[in-house]
Computed example of a mutant assay.
Amino acid sequence: MLPTLLLLLLSWPSFSLNLPAPPLSDPDEPARVEAPRNEAPAPRVRARRIGLHPRPSYRPNDPTRPTVCLIHGINSTSGSFVHLAPLLEREGYGVVLYDYPYNQELSRTIPAFVASLRAFREQHQDARPWSILSHSMGALLARSYVEGPHYADDVASLILIGPPNAGSALAPAQDMIQMLEALRSSIDPEGRTLMVLGERIGAAAKDLAPGSPFLDRLARNRPREGVPYYILAGDVGFLNKEIRQTIESRYRQIQRRSRFLGGLAGLALRNLPDVLDVLTEGTGDGAVAVASTRLEGATEHVVIPVNHVELIRGPIFYPDPGPVACQPFVSRWLAESLPIPTLAEAEAAPPAVDATVAVGGDGS
């Protein structure tokens, strides 16, 4: 019923938008996106084991190289940080990556993260606090640990990039997105689409739906005292405001012209405004609404004009090296919460525990 009603929205008499031609093929998994012809192929992300993977930069208990743990988002892997991780290392940080199955219930994913984090730190005898930087759904893992009963007072700061703190209206609305995708604006001239982020997300969709039992429980938590929460959001979706107004106008026409059909449309599309908030420039980043990223008690909340993937320059859309939108903010927040000490300060610090690290997980 929902796709049919949306088709009516798009094909009602006097509807005059010029629709772009549909893509010849759907994008594959993020690690296997093909670059357009005459362009270098996207970097391939190697398959990973689930768990924490240290990059060569990781040095447990080294006061001159603090650790940043990167947690990817939905329909992604730690390879989404292929452009960001090296920048952090050049600034002097050690990097640890976390991979997890993004398509299962968060009630299973979060305990697995907590257990993995505890085992990793014990294995490497790492006693120094880390900063956790997360993208998208990864923020819910990070928050659940820091705000939960198993927190071990080992996090210097949380940096949440595009976090769905109040969920995403796209999670339960994939049929609607399939239709609205035809109306994407010239914001994305190459034809790339953020709807790929919602494909094959499985059981996680239920937890990400606004008002889900999981999100209700998480909302009852309060930010952990002593841990700064930094939030970065984007507000560039793939519908412009004119296209949004056209969609809303078609919906109102259906309601006026047919009482029966209008009633069905009202039932099926009751969350249309929330979906449009996610997809429209100025109110969402194409995957998460700006309003959903906000969190009471956060240390800082910043909104910049980029889309959800562009926040971290994810290789699914941005395979080539270039500016990473979040970097200036991440650098400032790390300097505030996890500063790299001078040589004199490091020499004056207590000696670190000797720990050997198995190199791996380069995030490329």
Score class of each variant (00 low, 15 high):
Ala127Ile: 06
Ile110Lys: 02
Pro60Met: 12
Val236Pro: 01
Arg143Leu: 11
Arg37Met: 05
Gln253Trp: 06
Thr246Ile: 14
Ala298Asn: 03
Leu52Thr: 07
Glu336Gln: 15
Gly266Pro: 01
Leu88Pro: 00
Phe15Arg: 13
Pro20Met: 00
Arg224Asn: 02
Pro111Thr: 08
Glu225Phe: 09
Ala142His: 03
Ala233Tyr: 00
Ala346Gly: 01
Asn61Ile: 10
Arg250Asp: 01
Pro339Val: 06
Val146Tyr: 08
Pro63Trp: 13
Glu242Leu: 14
Ala349Val: 00
Pro172Gly: 10
Ala346Val: 04
Glu91Gly: 03
Glu242Ser: 13
Arg143Tyr: 01
Ile201Ala: 00
Ile201His: 01
Thr77Asn: 05
Asn61His: 13
Val290Gly: 01
Ala355Ile: 07
Asp354Ser: 08
Ile110Ser: 06
Pro172Phe: 04
Ser131His: 05
Asp62Thr: 09
Thr293Leu: 10
Glu122Arg: 15
Leu232Met: 10
Ala21Trp: 02
Thr64Met: 15
Pro101Trp: 02
Ala298Val: 03
Phe120Asp: 04
Ala139Asp: 15
Gly191Glu: 09
Val45Gln: 15
Gly286Glu: 14
Phe238Thr: 06
Phe120Met: 13
Glu300Val: 13
Pro172Cys: 13
Ile177His: 09
Ile316Asn: 11
Asp188Asn: 09
Pro339Ala: 05
